[in-house]
């Protein structure tokens, strides 16, 4: 099934809740609100025409230019994106769902933005969400066990944030 048809099915079901679509992208995607995520994902998995039974990847991107001299020319407003790459074992098609979030919840630095967890829909999301929380700093509400996965439990900060400051010392180990 082509991306046009998938988007048409989604629009027929969700209407204006599909905030944006980009069909001419290399991997076509739709943008939805975080609050609709679980419902849309469950529809994507369960609809007999779509059957996205495999979650390939969850990635977070931090759109931010920490250097103030370059920020004007960066070409984007500071925000976070969480991207879900889906594929179907039965139908053999792929699709991408995107969320656009503020960098910090309520614009208070340190408050992680929140996204509902899809671990109840695809078990693969369990570790991917833990990794995204760990490295990018997105809080997945409703996740069964949201701990850091690659970094140490007492690590501070989220390294894939663009304004992350590298620690100079960790438990007596010098950073540089």
């Amino acid at each position: 099934m082509t991306a046009q048809e998938i988007v048409a099915i989604l629009k027929e079901r969700f209407g204006p809740r599909i905030k944006a679509e980009k069909l001419d992208a290399i991997d076509p995607y739709v943008v939805i609100e975080p609050a609709d995520l679980v419902e849309v994902c469950r529809f994507l998995r369960d609809d007999p025409r779509l059957q996205f039974d495999m979650l390939n990847c969850i990635s977070g991107v931090d759109y931010c230019e920490p250097d103030p001299a370059k920020a004007a020319k960066a070409g984007f407003e500071p925000h976070l994106e969480v991207v879900y790459h889906l594929s179907s074992f039965v139908k053999r098609h792929r699709f991408v769902v995107k969320l656009i979030l503020p960098r910090w919840k309520d614009n208070k630095p340190g408050q992680l933005p929140e996204v509902p967890s899809v671990a109840s829909i695809w078990r693969a999301a369990d570790w991917h969400e833990r990794e995204t929380y760990d490295l990018v700093g997105v809080w997945f509400t409703g996740h069964p066990d949201l701990r850091r996965i690659l970094l140490a439990d007492d690590w501070e900060g989220h390294p894939l944030r663009k304004d992350y400051v590298f620690p100079l010392e960790y438990h007596g180990i010098r950073g540089r």
């Binding site: 990847c57 990635s59 991107v61 960066a74 984007f76 790459h85």
Partner: peptide, 18 residues
Amino acid sequence: WVVGRPSKDIVPLRVRAR
């Protein structure tokens, strides 16, 4: 997964390895 920068740079904005 590779994301290019809008500012036309050779360095990608994000590299993700699944």
